[in-house]
Design a protein around this nucleic acid. Structure first.
Length: 858
RNA sequence: GCCGAAGUGGCGGAACUGGUAGACGCGCUAGGUUCAGGGUCUAGUGGGUGUAUGCCUGUGGGGGUUCGAGUCCCCCCUUCGGCACCA
């Protein structure tokens, strides 16, 4: 009987669906296990990254279910976003139609993979029944001051035609368009006050043992907490004061000038009417025009301009000049810095360039340092000098006392600064959740009354050919009546960042049909938190940080009881493949290469690095043809077998063949011997066995132990699968051997084979169900309990002991397990080969490691 | 520049607490199979050396700790990832 994956996979998928086997029910008497993979953006087709992510999750879901857990394993769609708008313009369809078409297609693909989702909980975030609750949460945040609007400098991506959050800017470029530099625009924007929770989110980074350390490190760095002080510099000839944040208040006596960021609001104010005004304004405008990447690139020269004014160094009382400088960041600290050229390299270079004074305030212990001769800033620790009452102290030791000194004189205070800024969520896009706000000329900004929710996205709009949002041009959408004064008013036409949807979708899976509010207390409190979350490392900051923020907000609103959404996080590696590049024609698809040459020009192609699959590198492998050819089980198995989940997976067509061959091998093992196997019961562990059979029996139970450990503790499916392969090899070898095959032997073989089938079932659920049925079982494999190994089956009579002389392996002996150290040592020293290597030399020491080895030192 | 992860056969990867390095799979070699091909089965497969069931050598490089190091410590190199004028 041949293995036909397509036929048997659709048979079992239909069976599971009919029996509703993956539907989750709330049952407080059972231990819940909430497992989730990051939901996909419905781009059209599933790609290899999805296949890998969801296969890993499915194995865990099926395994936990077999272990008796009440498993929730949902799936849905991250359905708002730009690509729908672009596709709509290109294909002259509507984003909604395009999105729902894609969802339907991808759902078919996911079902074809045999994933064990509870499809009854599926939803798409573009459904008003989902985003209405998101709008409600926004209103509550607005009420509490957690959502606010301000005019500020924001990141703008020309290709997206919208504002981006700080988290969505990578190396100065848009996270979606890595070749599009982000520019700075001043505009009105809605923000969520994630900074209110920054400290708590940071604090809990130490309380998430189930998260990968590197993700936590990235989040800690992103929050960027630093201890320092705000120092107040009085503006000369004015009552105003300039505040500067520093972590080096120990160097305040050496601050010889002050720098503003060009964006700083005081800049325009203080230069009014001065001869320098024109120069300063010209410099500010020139700097603001630069895009963010150019401005912050390390090759960009540090530049500045004198602002024509002075302020007083509060420590020395001296007047120091004020500059505007391009390297000062507007949104870190206060946007103004005190410059200490002697002890900061940037300030040193700036001072040399503009011929500004230097004053040494820290000297290296036991050495001298002078302003005239120093060629770079002295940034190490040392002893304070020229620092009034603090002379002679060690600089680090004086950090606190200098802060206190400034504070006592009203010239500053100790503080903590964060790099984390509030989350900008306004998007000048159409395909997103509308922000439920109304602007009235009389009443100002007015929240939409709760009972008017949802503010639905109108579906009867045509996309604008230039790519902008049609909402500001749709009077039927934006024209409205003020809920307060009933006068004419205008709706907010910006929509929310799509990361808002994904910040709480995991909560909504627990009660997707709930109509009384965002979350059904009873159900959400039963299932949350997510026990295991699985997804790509690319969301280490973005989605995972926002979700932690939202969970805290929802908790404070009383919707949730948990503070952290995800107890355990597994970040799977990328799916990679080598690239091929023609010197003439750039990256090539595999079919464009014949015998290592470009089909177009015949030039020899260069095989490039193995990198993440992407369309632009033309190294993508579409899973669908593979599923069609080999079946879902083979694709699932290869994804798991090629490498452990947290590492990158290198795609290999040959490797897929190997997985397919193995499935054929175990299939033949079952079908070729089905009569002999099914006529005997599974070995019960009672009859005594000849050595060879005992070895098979032992291997069976060793394999259970190994596979369980690999899944339960490490998610190392690759070694688990290897272990089952070994067991199958052992059985095959036994069957090919001349050993007698009586009923006892067949019952041992039955045990080994059935164990292999059960252990493999989370990985390759279809073929194993089919074999399980052939083996005479009528219950579904998913309801079979996960096997436990028998301790007594693991016992051995003899143990292999490795014999070493001076640490080199020279011989091996078998000894009974009952042997003590002395007996093993005696046996080892009596070994012929060991005697030969001792060669009459005096034995200095003999090390005996129980159960393992003997090392003779001569 | 800073932080982190990783470097093991021709390839993907094993080796979990220091104890037989290379499990398992791919590829390759030889052979079997009424063997067209594909498939499948058996044996072999880190390198060197050899008459030898042998010996030497070997986990990016160099030191060290240890009876014993892929594993622990120090220095260096390479690759990948994150952050990067953060005051």
């Amino acid at each position: 009987m041949k293995y036909y994956p397509q036929k048997l996979e659709s048979k079992w998928q239909a069976f599971w669906e009919k029996k509703n086997l993956f539907k989750a029910f709330e049952d407080p008497s059972r231990e819940k296990y909430y497992l989730m993979e990051m939901f996909p953006y419905p781009s059209g087709n599933i790609h290899m990254g999805h296949v890998r992510n969801y296969t890993i999750g499915d194995v865990v879901a099926r395994y936990k279910r077999m272990c008796g857990k009440n498993v929730l394993h949902p799936m849905g769609w991250d359905a708002f976003g730009m690509p729908a708008e672009n596709a709509a313009i290109e294909n002259n369809t509507h984003p909604a139609k395009w999105t729902y078409n894609n969802i339907n297609g991808m759902k078919v693909q996911l079902k074809r993979m045999g994933f064990s989702y509870d499809w009854d909980r599926e939803f798409a975030t573009c459904d008003p029944e989902y985003y209405r609750w998101e709008q409600l949460i926004f209103l509550k945040m607005y009420e509490k001051g957690l959502a606010y609007k301000k005019r500020t400098h924001v990141n703008w991506c020309e290709k997206c035609q919208t504002v981006l959050a700080n988290e969505q800017v990578e190396n100065g470029c848009c996270w979606r368009h890595t070749d599009q530099e982000v520019s700075i625009k001043e505009m009105d924007s809605w923000f969520l006050k994630i900074t209110d929770y920054g400290e708590d989110i940071l604090d809990y980074c130490d309380k998430l043992p189930g998260w990968p350390e590197r993700v936590l490190t990235m989040q800690r760095n992103w929050i960027g907490k630093s201890h320092g002080a705000i120092i107040r510099f009085p503006l000369k000839d004015s009552d105003e004061v300039i505040e500067a944040f520093t972590t080096r208040q120990d160097t305040v006596f050496g601050a010889t000038f002050l720098c503003f960021a060009p964006e700083h609001p005081m800049v325009r104010e203080i230069i009014k009417g001065l001869p320098e005004e024109g120069d300063v304004l010209e410099f500010v405008e020139r700097t603001l025009k630069m895009d963010r990447y150019m401005r912050t690139a390390d090759f960009t020269a540090k530049e500045g301009v004198f602002a024509g004014r002075y302020c007083l160094n509060p420590a020395t009382g001296e007047k120091i000049p004020i500059f505007v400088a391009n390297f000062v960041l507007p949104d870190y600290g206060t946007g103004a810095i005190m410059a200490v050229p002697t002890h900061d390299q940037r300030d040193f270079e700036f001072a040399k360039k503009y011929d500004l004074p230097l004053r040494v305030v820290i000297k290296p212990p036991g050495q001298d340092l002078s302003e005239e001769t120093m060629t770079e800033a002295f940034v190490d620790q040392g002893i304070l000098v020229n620092s009034g009452p603090f002379d002679g102290q060690r600089n680090l030791g004086a950090l606190d006392s200098i802060a206190e000194y400034l504070e006592s004189k009203g010239m500053g205070y100790k503080t903590v600064n964060y790099r984390l800024k509030d989350w900008g969520i306004s998007r000048q896009r159409y395909w997103g959740a509308p922000i439920p706000i109304i602007y009235c000329e009389k009443c100002g900004t007015v929240p939409v009354p709760e009972e008017d929710l949802p503010i639905t996205l109108p579906l009867d709009l045509d996309m604008r050919p230039n790519g902008g949002s049609p909402l500001p041009f749709s009077s039927s959408f934006f024209e409205t009546i003020c809920p307060n004064c009933k006068g004419k008013a205008r709706r907010e036409t910006d929509t929310m960042d799509t990361f808002v949807e994904s910040s709480w979708y995991f909560d909504r899976y627990t009660c997707p049909d709930y109509t009384e509010g965002p979350l059904d207390q009873e159900r959400v409190n039963y299932w949350m938190p997510v026990d295991q979350y699985i997804g790509g490392i690319e969301h280490a900051i973005l989605h995972l940080l926002y979700s932690r923020f939202y969970t805290r907000v929802l908790r404070d609103f009383g919707y949730l009881k948990v503070k952290e959404p995800f107890t355990n996080l597994l970040t799977q590696g990328m799916v990679c493949k080598e690239t091929q590049e023609c010197p003439e024609h750039g990256y090539l698809y595999p079919q464009e290469v014949k015998e290592d040459c470009c089909v177009r020009c015949g030039t020899r192609v260069n095989t490039g690095n193995t990198v993440k699959m992407s369309k632009s590198k033309k190294n993508v492998v579409d899973p669908q043809p593979l599923i069609d050819e080999y079946g879902a089980d083979t694709v699932r198995m290869f994804c798991l077998f090629a490498s452990p989940p947290e590492k990158d997976l290198e795609w290999s067509d040959r490797g897929v063949d190997g997985s397919y061959r193995f499935l054929n091998r175990i299939w033949r093992l079952v079908t070729d011997h089905i009569d002999e196997i099914t006529k005997v019961p599974v070995y019960e562990g009672k009859d005594s066995l000849p050595d060879r059979l005992k070895a098979v029996h032992r291997k069976t139970h060793q394999t259970i132990k190994k596979v369980t450990d690999d899944i339960e503790n490490r998610f190392h499916f690759n070694t688990g699968i290897s272990a089952v392969m070994e067991l199958v090899n052992e059985v095959t070898q036994f069957l090919n051997s001349k050993e007698k095959k009586d009923d006892t032997a067949w019952s041992i073989i039955r045990e080994a084979i059935e164990t292999s089938v059960v252990l493999l079932s989370p990985v390759v659920p279809h073929i194993t169900e089919e074999m399980w049925e052939m083996l005479g079982h009528d219950e579904c494999l998913i309801t079979v309990p996960w096997p436990e190994y028998r301790e007594d089956a693991l016992e051995v009579e003899n143990r292999l002991i490795v014999l070493q002389v001076n640490g080199k392996v020279r011989s091996r002996i078998e000894v009974p397990v009952s042997y003590g150290e002395d007996e093993i040592e005696a046996k080892a020293l009596a070994d012929e080969r060991i005697k030969h290597f001792i060669d009459g030399k005096p034995v200095r020491k003999v090390i005996v490691v129980q159960k393992k080895l003997v090392n003779v030192v001569v």
